[in-house]
Write a protein that binds this DNA or RNA. Structure first.
Lengths: 121, 121
DNA sequence: GCACATATGAAAACGGTTGTCATTTTCACT
DNA sequence: AGTGAAAATGACAACCGTTTTCATATGTGC
């Protein structure tokens, strides 16, 4: 089992705590850090195992990783300009937990993303 | 521009209104309906255009299509056996609407999916 | 029947992700 | 320092879902 390469984590931080594997790889290349794409994927996998990062999916299916540990939050994204607002999801957390226990599920995670049109568009 | 093949839609209905392109294709094959994978994808694309179906992503990135139009609902999916429970999302709808108006967004849609481990797994 | 548009599906291309494997690095122990 | 085992690395190929291409089939209106 491989350990996470610390430079991957620090690049993810630098990216605003929200990026895909390919983006992290590109960022590191641009900075002149030499690393293989494979290692980026492996590091993210390992960070995921250790629950240092979360994964979710963009609309096109690409996996994006974000730091977790800080308060869990969701996003409100504008469909036309891409503007993104971070949302506190306290209500959702409770809802998820309730639904899960009602149905006998354990270890429940959730995704909740909102998208619409912002005031400027 | 291609039209949707009606057998694709009826297979999606038969699958419980919730399936991936590959699953629909497999289902049809098993039933002896001859169809190409390409046509399944194209039909789903067209159903999507016409807003007959919704698309969202499984955890592994595979796109799953569901009938929409019936009451909007969410899903609680077991990570290990795939068991799926349909969830009424009244609370979420309100939450989404509030958040949206607080931030000046219009035409807001949302995805919210829960996944965990069911009682049998 | 004939032209013209549309529908179809096999095969190839594509893009993100994962697996393979030979090489390099790390490190505990002499 | 020297050595050897274990872990990490990265080029490359395999994989898988999806999209594109293209040649063929099936209409549809004249």
């Amino acid at each position: 089992m491989s350990r996470s390469n610390p430079r991957v984590l620090s690049t993810l931080e630098r990216a605003g705590g929200f990026a895909s594997a390919q983006e992290i790889y590109a960022l590191m290349q641009r900075d002149g850090q030499q690393i293989g794409l494979t290692t980026v994927y492996r590091s993210l996998q390992s960070l995921l195992n250790d629950k240092i990062v979360d994964v979710l999916r963009r609309e096109d299916g690409e996996a994006i990783y974000r730091l977790c540990g800080e308060s869990h939050h969701h996003h409100l994204v504008c469909k036309s300009c891409g503007k993104t607002v971070e949302i506190e999801g306290g209500a959702i957390e409770k809802w998820a937990k309730n639904i899960a226990s009602e149905n006998g599920f354990r270890d429940v995670g959730h995704t909740a993303e909102l998208f619409g049109t912002c005031s400027n568009c």
